[in-house]
Design a binder for these strands. Structure first.
Lengths: 165, 165
DNA sequence: TTGCTCACTTTCTTCAGCGAAGTTACGCTG
DNA sequence: CAGCGTAACTTCGCTGAAGAAAGTGAGCAA
């Protein structure tokens, strides 16, 4: 399901990556899934995306190996949701780099606030997206918490295969 | 000139970034401009993008402060091209992160080859996109060379405001 | 059996992408 | 000076994706 032209066989790795993640929805879906919010309705409500587009993106992302299906309990029922694969979770540095760029180069909206990315392993806020600026360790989703003051909430990220009911 | 919905006033910095760079062409244009290839015809030929779309993207990127106009000499004439601003050049970590992800998680095409990102300051290939894995310094475009074996060529990147004639 | 939730799928309109052709500016050639 | 070439766009026509909203089906619960 190509977004536009097929760039999957380009020699340049940037272009091959963009063939898969060169759509804003894909990165936002990965972000939410890494927050453990991988149910269809959670994604729809959290992102404000049309159901048709969400459905198509999820199918493409399963196909590309960014997501996998996981089961969760809804009362007595078992339903299907989505979780990140290793490849999907490995997009964390890209997401955090985007967050850092956004903090540096876009204007905070009315009532907005700085989002801190805390490395739970060492307890410090990191000012880098790839390795912790405090302890130098490579950053993994399951060791990160995103502090979102505008929601009055801190969200712990989850590793590959994880979905919070 | 919004791509779709306007995300410029979202509280989440990831979303605000994607409002600006959430289009594959935008990142590819930044990449080529950071290689000094910021002329309209160079971008068109190098990217294989339609002229209409390129024109619209360049206008949006000027507007967003990613690019600025610079003059260059074409024989006796002075023409206008594009160069990265400080904000545009600061997308380098995002681009390099995408390149690294592509190398790890997408298949090398027939006749393809690994692309090395060399930090000219210390002379080593870096395996990270944000700070040099060899010397630890933050990576700036003007200190990087991208080695592209499939072209038999190494391209030195350029800093903000620079355009190679 | 009716209703409810969740996960989709279908339909319809609008808008963006792509390819190709046209336009403008300006210097160069004959 | 008339015509030509090149770079940088703009316009046009077609097609396909986005988005909004309504419809479908599966499995419970009352």
């Amino acid at each position: 399901m190509p977004l536009r032209s097929d760039w999957s066989t380009e020699p340049c790795p940037v272009r091959r990556s963009l063939d898969v993640v060169g759509d804003p929805w894909v990165l936002l879906i990965v972000r939410d899934v890494l927050h453990g919010r991988g149910r269809f309705d959670q994604l729809r409500d959290g992102l404000g995306i049309s159901e048709a587009v969400l459905s198509r993106r999820l199918a493409a992302m399963l196909d590309a190996g960014l997501l996998e299906r996981v089961e969760y309990a809804d009362g007595a029922r078992t339903r299907q949701g989505y979780a990140a694969t290793e490849a999907g979770a490995d997009l964390l540095p890209v997401l955090q780099q985007l967050a850092l760029w956004g903090e540096r180069h876009t204007a905070l909206p009315e009532g907005g606030a700085h989002m801190a990315m805390v490395h739970d392993t060492c307890g410090a806020e990191t000012t880098r997206g790839e390795v912790c600026s405090a302890c130098g360790a490579p950053l993994r989703p399951e060791h990160m918490t995103w502090v979102k003051p505008w929601l009055g909430r801190s969200d712990r990220l989850v590793g590959p295969g994880t979905l919070l009911g």
